[in-house]
């Protein structure tokens, strides 16, 4: 699928300008860039949560799932939270087991720790298929072990459901581990895109090189 070109302005300041972008189905596209580069704004516009300057959707006619950076735990048990997005209890149980929160199924989601809450939110968004799935830093609050399990699950979902998956991340190593493609943003501008191996190993643009050097890669 392909997005339309768009720009986003807040209080007279243009914070994001992007050309038309390709989001291949069955693949993971990581959006990387330093803080303030517009990654989360891009995710929100893609999800239809925020509008572009011309008020037109950049994608249409597809189902979109979006996991915000700080997903909200509803005031109910962990299991009921997950079942809000689909009634398939066996899938919910399977997801909870995979992410190691099955023992917290009956516990109030409000009482989960940051990492547990992030795992619950990931289970919840993976309960049903979407044409486009956007995950905004889904593993930031998780420990390394949970992060690796979550990445495996994200990859599996992308392959099995054949959806286009957009992963917003500030972790270059995470992009390297699971992304098929990479889009690089810097100060609200598109820098480059391509196969992750190519962009992360042999970047064409200077800004990408600086960004990767900064992260020691």
């Amino acid at each position: 699928m392909k997005t339309n070109a768009f720009s986003k302005t807040y209080n007279g300041r243009t914070v994001l300008t992007l050309p038309a972008l390709e989001l291949p189905t069955g693949q993971i596209t990581a959006v990387i860039g330093p803080n303030g580069s517009g990654k989360s704004t891009f995710a929100k516009i893609l999800a239809g949560i925020e509008r572009t300057d011309d008020k037109k959707p950049i994608l249409s006619g597809i189902s979109v799932g979006y996991l915000p950076q700080k997903s909200f735990p509803f005031r109910m048990s962990t299991e009921k939270n997950i079942l809000q997005n689909g009634k398939n209890l066996s899938r919910a149980t399977k997801l909870m087991k995979m992410l190691g929160i099955d023992h917290l199924a009956k516990q109030s989601a409000k009482k989960l720790s940051g990492g547990e809450s992030a795992r619950m939110a990931l289970c919840r968004i993976l309960m049903r298929p979407y044409d486009l799935l956007i995950l905004d830093e889904p593993t930031t609050a998780m420990d390394m072990e949970s992060t690796l399990v979550a990445e495996k699950l994200i990859r599996q979902t992308s392959r099995e459901q054949g959806c286009a998956l957009v992963l917003i991340t500030h972790s270059i190593s995470q992009a390297r581990r699971i992304a098929d493609r990479v889009i690089v943003l810097h100060q609200g501008q598109f820098i480059e895109q391509g196969q992750s191996v190519q962009v992360l190993s042999k970047p064409k643009q200077e800004k990408t090189k600086h960004f990767l050097e900064f992260y020691g890669l």
Binding site: A47, S63, V64, G65, P68, K70, F74, R75, A121
Partner: peptide, 26 residues
């Protein structure tokens, strides 16, 4: 705002969004 972002991200309609909001408000 946070509840709405999550609910819309999950693809919930306005009615479900309000039901969840009222549940938060008890």
């Amino acid at each position: 705002p946070a509840l709405r972002e999550t609910a819309r991200g999950l693809g919930f309609g306005r009615m479900k969004e309000y039901r969840l909001l009222i549940n938060e408000c008890l």
